[in-house]
């Protein structure tokens, strides 16, 4: 999909390598250093690949969502339900350090899935998603979910080329998480509050969660739901539908304030 510059595939780095340096500074004679100005974003390469992903997804009319949460917040169960209920064709990129458990679950739920194992890595980057998309071959006009590695810190930094970032927090994790993990909540285009069926059993102040999330991310929509019972799933499907059809822009929030 990147015939233009070929980047993103494993060996594509070759195309970004330049000819051997033709300058000679007399290395052998003496140690004289000179300054080379770079003035570039550290993550420029990731951002470049992310833009490729974004362009390609747009050309295929595919809406892609980056799902991020701590381990066990319920990303995979939410996706299993979404596969069954979503009107558009769903396919999934599963990111975990090890195992193909989650991809197997998504396939069992009836959708295409590709597992990415990051090994020591604690987040997905745009290059991994690029390669995964190549393998996944998602249907034009469909929806791609990218389940990031369970981690409330690192994935926030890496643009994958997604339409929107969805942060999932479950009621068993505590209502103080936004201010403890501000970068993740500041980056969210949508916050899903999962496991609401467990609210009677835990001390979780939903108002506090919403208020704190909005201190970092004014106006962000918080959708409460239970991936277990299916309660709240309609609002989630509705948000997916509207965000995909308007071409989600982070500065345009859907107006469904949670009280």
């Amino acid at each position: 999909m990147c015939s233009t510059c070929g980047c993103g595939t494993d060996d594509a780095r070759v195309e970004h390598e330049h000819a051997p340096p033709d300058h000679d500074h007399g290395h052998d004679e003496h140690e004289r250093t000179h300054t080379v100005e770079l003035e570039q974003a550290v993550l420029a390469r990731n951002d470049h690949l992310a833009q490729h992903n974004r362009d390609w997804l747009a050309s295929q009319d595919i809406a892609a969502y980056n799902l991020m949460s701590s381990p066990g917040a319920g990303k995979t169960p939410l996706l299993e339900r979404t596969v069954a209920a979503c009107a558009r064709q769903v396919s999934v990129i599963e990111g975990d350090q090890e195992t193909v458990f989650d991809a197997d679950r998504i396939r069992a739920a009836g959708a295409r899935a590709v597992q990415v194992n990051t090994g020591a890595g604690c987040h997905l980057d745009a290059g991994m998603v690029h390669r995964a998309l190549d393998k996944l071959q998602p249907e034009p006009g469909g929806v791609v979910f990218i389940e990031n590695v369970g981690n409330l810190v690192c994935p926030a930094l890496f643009d994958l080329g997604e339409l929107a970032k969805v942060v999932i927090i479950s009621v068993t994790e505590g209502d103080d998480k936004p201010l403890k993990y501000p970068h993740m909540f500041a980056a969210a285009d949508l916050v899903v509050l999962n496991k609401t069926d467990l609210l009677p059993y835990v001390d979780f102040d939903t108002r506090r969660l919403v208020a704190d999330a909005r201190r970092l991310n004014p106006g962000v929509t918080v959708l409460p739901l239970s991936a277990r019972t299916g309660e709240g799933l309609d609002a989630w499907l509705g948000w997916l539908g509207s965000s995909a059809s308007v071409g989600f822009r982070p500065d345009v929030r859907t107006a469904t304030p949670l009280t």
Binding site: H25, H34, T35, V36, E37, L38
Partner: peptide, 10 residues
């Protein structure tokens, strides 16, 4: 900011 500003090269 998350930028590489410059380098000193031998």
């Amino acid at each position: 900011e998350l930028q590489v500003a410059s380098v000193e090269v031998a």
